[in-house]
Design a protein around this nucleic acid. Structure first.
Length: 499
RNA sequence: GAGCCAUUAGCUCAGUCGGUAGAGCACCGGACUUUUAAUCCGGGCGUCCGGGGUUCGAAUCCCCGAUGGCUCACCA
């Protein structure tokens, strides 16, 4: 039995399909019976819809060939108006029986919302002034068996928007725009770094050790080698090996995976860029960050002043710089700069009702105060620098105060957007830091870093002083496209399977 | 993982005090050759998220479950 017979047969059987689908299957069946192809062939377009509209003066009266999806039909007996939507947008078609012929016009009248057609016709303007194509020829390209959502309200059901993004994209131009902007932002970043002489590289996604960040990895298994592998949680350690190798300026913009909770700011797989520049440092990374983000905003949005969920954000460099201790002084009215013992720090944390982990030391307490009292206050772009050593096992120590590191995090609208440091290039210190992390791990911190012996070996060959930076691309896209949830900037966000 | 809220026609939503299901769009039939959320006439759509319970009677009240949203937790 071939496909055609199968469809005709199936359609003869009563089933539980909705009226809409039955009607469309009936139309499909009659097309097949009439030897009309409902699944179309290659079609030659001469223009995108938007071209015809923007270049109307030149194109008026001439013939164009367009293709797209039927999104609205306004019938008037022997003539019909149709909205045809392609990647560039909507254009109106006018189809007349006397121009197309009675038979072809009747056939046209059986087309449904959602069907995909190609047309040839001449460009004109209606009485009301809308650029329209008078259809002379129409080619059926693809049958839609399911009805479209409400043409006026569109698709509102958030669950369905994420699960069936194709429907969302079909009916929501603003969703399409967001994802087009996402691509432009990513291209602008690549462009910016390429122009500075950075080399884009690819490093392994499957790791034998999940290092470079404090996070739980996804675990998988290689059958032939019979070994456990982890999906990467960061790009860091491989990229720094490439700095040892002599590339000097490298970046990778790609997916990382963290086995953690899901929220409006967290998707299990997300896109990060990490870049490393030999002979630079934390200050170089600050300058690069503010200049790059401002430049990308300007290129994609045409402005450095943006609005995020009603808040005005000014991305014009230079951005505010404040140390973590100063921030705590400012927002929590607490001076933690003195020589506090771990016990004293913990006592203070308890007094302020911080949730404490058993493995915590002075440095963790400082970070705890910062997270509780400061993060949400940092609305305008702010570099917070001087992170405690205990939470920064890959960063160089602050030469003046070895309890802290040459590290910054960037906060905008109260959220972390970037993380950077002068990279630790002392293999002996690095080994000790990993050992300290292992102790934390034993104390119950599942997210503590793991020991990476080969990375130590790489450092033993000598890594130049280096500045490194990581930016969460999804969060940056959220910021620049004014989207409230990370799911609004990821085409297919992770969802629990239904049922 | 916890709390709160939501789930009704293809889509967007209403549904009173517990009395047996509604609108707009879409769809079906008809009219209509410059409309544009086209208009006009006619038509009926349904596992009220799923399962159990209370009740003479449940979309509505109670319990369990599913999925989603928000907040919190987790997450540098």
């Amino acid at each position: 039995m071939n496909d055609r017979d199968q469809i005709i047969n199936n359609n003869n059987q009563p089933d539980e399909l909705s009226e809409h689908i039955k009607v469309r299957l009936d139309k499909l069946t009659s097309m097949l019976k009439d030897n009309k192809n409902p699944w179309g062939l290659r079609y030659e377009k001469t223009h995108d819809n938007l071209d015809v509209i923007t270049r109307f003066e030149q194109l008026e009266g001439s013939e164009v060939s367009l293709a797209g999806r039927i999104m609205a039909i306004r019938g008037h007996g022997k003539a019909t108006f149709v909205d045809l939507v392609d990647r560039s947008g909507k254009i109106q078609l006018h189809v007349k029986a006397d121009l197309l012929g009675e038979e072809r016009y009747h056939e046209f009248s059986t087309y449904d919302l959602g069907d995909i057609i190609g047309i040839k016709g001449t460009v004109f303007k209606t009485k009301r002034g809308e650029v329209t194509v008078q259809v002379k020829e129409c080619t059926f390209l693809t049958k839609a068996l399911r009805p479209l959502p409400d043409k006026f309200h569109g698709l509102k059901d958030i669950d369905m928007r994420y699960r069936q993004r194709y429907v969302d994209l079909m009916v929501s131009p603003e969703v399409r725009d967001t994802f087009i902007k996402r691509t432009k932002i990513i291209k602008a970043i690549r462009n910016y770094l390429d122009n500075l002489g950075y080399l884009e590289v690819e490093t392994p996604v499957m790791h034998t050790l999940a290092g470079g960040a404090a996070a739980k990895p996804f675990v998988t298994h290689h059958n032939a080698l019979d070994m456990t592998l982890y999906l990467r949680i960061a790009l860091e350690l491989h990229l720094k090996r490439l700095i040892v190798g002599g590339f000097e300026k490298v970046y990778e913009m790609s997916r990382v995976f963290r086995n953690e909770g899901i929220s409006t700011r967290h998707n299990p797989e997300f896109t990060m860029i990490e870049l490393y520049e030999a002979y630079s440092d934390i200050d170089g990374m600050m300058e690069l960050t503010e200049n790059m983000v401002a430049s990308v905003a300007n290129e994609v949005l045409g402005t450095k002043k943006i609005s995020y969920q009603g808040q005005e954000i000014d991305l014009t460099p230079p951005w505010t710089r404040i140390s973590m201790l100063e921030a705590i002084k400012k927002y929590a009215n607490l001076d933690l700069s003195g020589d506090l013992s771990d016990a004293e720090a913990l006592k203070l944390a308890k007094e302020h009702h911080l949730e404490i982990e058993p493995s915590w030391t002075y440095g963790h307490v400082v970070n705890g105060f910062f997270e509780k009292y400061c993060e949400e206050k940092l609305i305008q772009p702010t570099f917070v620098y001087g992170h405690p050593l205990a939470i920064s096992p890959l960063a160089k120590k602050d030469e003046k105060d070895p309890r802290f590191t040459q590290r910054f995090e960037l906060f905008i609208v109260g959220r972390e957007h970037a993380n950077a440091f002068s990279e630790l290039n002392d293999p002996i210190d690095q080994k000790q830091r990993f050992l300290d992390q292992l102790k934390e791990r034993e104390a119950g911190n599942e997210e503590a870093h793991v020991m990476d012996e080969d990375f130590i070996t790489a450092l033993e060959y000598g890594m130049p002083p280096t500045g490194g930076l990581g930016i969460g691309i999804d969060r940056l896209v959220m910021l620049l496209t004014d989207q409230p949830s990370i799911r609004d900037v990821i085409l297919f966000p992770h969802m629990r399977p239904k049922e």
